[in-house]
């Protein structure tokens, strides 16, 4: 389970953010005072930091530079300002991603899992039921048993796989697809999921994707 450290000075947002992240299966801790944020971040041992740019005693970008002196911990910058300048400054100070308030919670979660995936599985291979998953090739398994998936099916499969056995809602799958510039509608998603399920069954994998009424899908 990944640990996230939240640096956000608005208490209401902080509390809700922590709840959102906990509900999504992350372990969350947060900064409550902002005197030495970078030290708190470094000692938290978290896997990812959500860092607000406007802090009471410091500027988020300065804090980020401070962190970057000693650590490569993934950082997502958050701001309420809509402008290209903040984003460019943040990215050049070494942020891994950048998101503007009010963020769509679904997009925020997607970004978090994308950054975590990018940084954690840089070398590690992902497998499903012992079969190697090759996202770049768009396939599962090797040799003559290789299951070839379409781009959309691969996006859905990866999203289900990365949830680690948790339910993934249709909204989350949609967000992941749209984030890859695949603008599917409701019917198309249903079709893609049943095709994916069929392909897995054809390859001899039974009971893979289960539908949970009104909640979403789960990969067993």
């Amino acid at each position: 389970m990944s640990r996230i450290f939240v640096v956000e000075d608005d208490k209401a947002i902080r509390d809700e953010l922590c709840e959102l992240l906990e509900n999504s299966g992350y372990e969350v801790s947060a900064a409550h005072e902002f005197g030495d944020v970078s030290a708190q971040v470094l000692s938290s041992g978290a896997d990812l930091v959500l860092l607000d740019i406007n802090l009471p005693d410091a500027n988020g970008q300065t804090v980020l530079k401070e962190i970057r002196k000693t650590s490569d911990i993934p950082v997502i910058m958050v701001t309420s300002r809509t402008g290209e300048t903040d984003e460019m400054l943040s990215m050049s100070s070494g942020a891994d991603d950048f998101i503007t308030k009010p963020y769509n919670p679904m997009i925020l979660l997607l970004r978090i899992s994308a950054v975590l995936k990018r940084t954690q599985s840089a070398g590690a291979k992902t497998t499903y039921r012992g079969l190697p998953v090759n996202a770049a090739r768009g396939s599962i398994g090797e040799g003559k048993n290789e299951i070839v998936l379409t781009k959309n099916e691969m996006i859905i499969f990866s999203r289900l796989l990365s949830s680690g056995g948790q339910i993934v809602s249709r909204d989350e799958l949609m967000t992941a697809l749209w984030d890859n510039e695949e603008y599917l509608n409701d019917n198309a998603l249903t079709v893609n999921i049943s095709r994916l399920r069929q392909k897995l069954t054809d390859a001899g994998l039974e009971n893979t994707i289960e539908t949970r009424k009104k909640q979403g899908y789960i990969l067993l």
Binding site: I13, N23, S80, K101, P102
Partner: peptide, 29 residues
């Protein structure tokens, strides 16, 4: 505008955390 985005941000998080009951608020937000 930047200030008013903070309460909007916390409200949309609250609405999301409410689950299905919060969906109608999300749209208005």
């Amino acid at each position: 505008v930047h200030e008013v985005k903070l309460p909007i941000a916390s409200l949309s998080l609250m609405a999301h955390n409410e689950g299905e009951a919060g969906e109608k608020y999300t749209e208005q937000l």
